[in-house]
Design a protein around this nucleic acid. Structure first.
Lengths: 258, 258
DNA sequence: TCAAAAGTGTTAGGTCTACACCCATGA
DNA sequence: TCATGGGTGTAGACCTAACACTTTTGA
């Protein structure tokens, strides 16, 4: 068999899909767009699109992220942009039946963003919204009883996007344990308490504020004090920090048992 | 723009490439095949091949693994096969220039296998061999001086396979830290000392045999004693174990500093 | 003055490291 | 008998969880 004979391999369409996570009102939320055409017309889906002919996968994901949110993906080799977001490859999904029309392989990416004003619909999407991941995954106990709700908020995500979202959430949950990634959910300057509330929202647990404070301030290179303080959370003024250069957290932050 | 208009997106070829790791003679080794045709003819590369038209990505990877090694990939939902190997998706590589002839997106997979008799060349590969990863990555200080050695053992891997291999090795090195994955490098029954030598080879460090023994035997569900013993390593007879059901290691095995 | 959030101290209990020591076999 | 690897004990350093307590603001 001649592996590179053009007639010897089937053609694929390649897309990037994005799991864009943020923390809003104490809950982990993901960006969802409403599909404007079949299949799954009217259903919610993850943002995404085709990879262009001469475009790298990471570039395609960064382009989609800008189109959907206006966020610049953070390139670790360059200067940090004002509205930076963390962007990494998540996994690739290529079940032959995942798209009913043709063979599509989707390279999913995970983006972590600070709380943003309001999503703007981009491309061919009718509308976009931030929704709690538990609700998008149908785990929030919200009524799914009664008649079909295919085109309403409670309907399952299109394609295999529920699987992709679940994988992205699990990646984020485990990765903030041993890396400084949680700071990607915060704005450029933040307090220790705000960072703790990120952990609490992502993990869905309560953490001891005193031990958390000691832990993060005691890890060299994790947090850099800016000198400023804020009282935006009420109470005693809190020091402001920026994310330090350290990217791995050793020893890790421990996720409490249920 | 109509996203699914067949003329609106570029066609891609999709392949799976395999990083197959094993531990041989106290060194972490990877499976390499010699390319039989251009480009990179005569150079070593990772095994891989095209995904078929109606084939899942995982199925394609498992098929390639069998073709190259005869190993069955372990399906966690089914009964453990006799010669099982761990197989998981690693990452996807899609730089537009990674293959000089056409646009190829490669979904790389990572396989961990026990020490095997001898690789059999499969498909279009001229030959196959196990080689220490440090040598395949050109980090072993072996003479690369003098004349070009394009078609010899010391030449760099074809395409971007050095990057893929490095990513796979790094994944394996970090994953045995907090999971029971190291047992995938052992045969079905193994001793604590054999498991320790796996860690030592993968990490390239020396571990304290006493503390290691306490650690692994003290983690519930990690190791299951079979009742048998062996003296194949010399010295006092050692208990034989099988891998237990536990897949996460908590607390993790700590990788010593250099 | 009070509530709320920030930040510090302290103590008991666990885990890891390093090393001393004994055990069971083959040569 | 000796070398080799298997396995257990123990003391100190380190880490963590839990919780009492002080500090500094806005209302």
């Amino acid at each position: 068999m001649s592996p590179y004979d053009p007639s010897a391999f089937p053609p694929f369409a390649v897309t990037v899909d994005l799991v864009v996570l943020t923390v809003r009102r104490h809950a982990l939320c993901a960006l969802a767009v409403r599909r404007g055409e079949p299949p799954f017309q009217g259903r919610w889906a993850l943002p995404g699109g085709f990879v262009r002919a001469d475009e790298d996968l990471a570039a395609a994901a960064a382009r989609e992220l800008i189109e959907e949110t206006g966020l610049l993906a953070h390139d670790p080799t360059g200067p940090a942009p004002v509205n930076g977001a963390h962007l990494e490859q998540l996994a690739t999904y290529g079940d032959p039946d995942r798209d009913p029309r043709m063979r599509v392989v989707s390279v999913a990416h995970l983006a972590l963003a600070p709380d943003l004003p309001a999503p703007r619909a981009g491309g061919d999407a009718h509308s976009a919204r931030w929704a709690p991941v538990e609700s998008l995954l149908g785990r929030d106990g919200a009524g799914r009883d009664g008649a079909s709700r295919d085109e309403e908020e409670g309907a399952p995500l299109a394609f295999d996007h529920a699987t992709i979202l679940a994988d992205g959430v699990e990646r984020a949950r485990s990765k903030i344990e041993y890396s400084s990634l949680a700071t990607a959910f915060c704005s450029r300057e933040f307090t220790v308490g705000e960072l703790r509330r990120v952990y609490e929202a992502v993990w869905g647990v309560a953490l001891d504020p005193r031990n958390f404070h000691r832990k993060v301030t005691g890890t060299p290179g994790f947090l850099v004090p800016t000198g400023g303080t804020t009282t935006r959370q009420g109470g005693r003024p809190a020091q402001l920090f920026r994310a330090g250069g350290a990217t791995v957290l050793n020893p890790p932050m421990l996720r409490p048992e249920p």
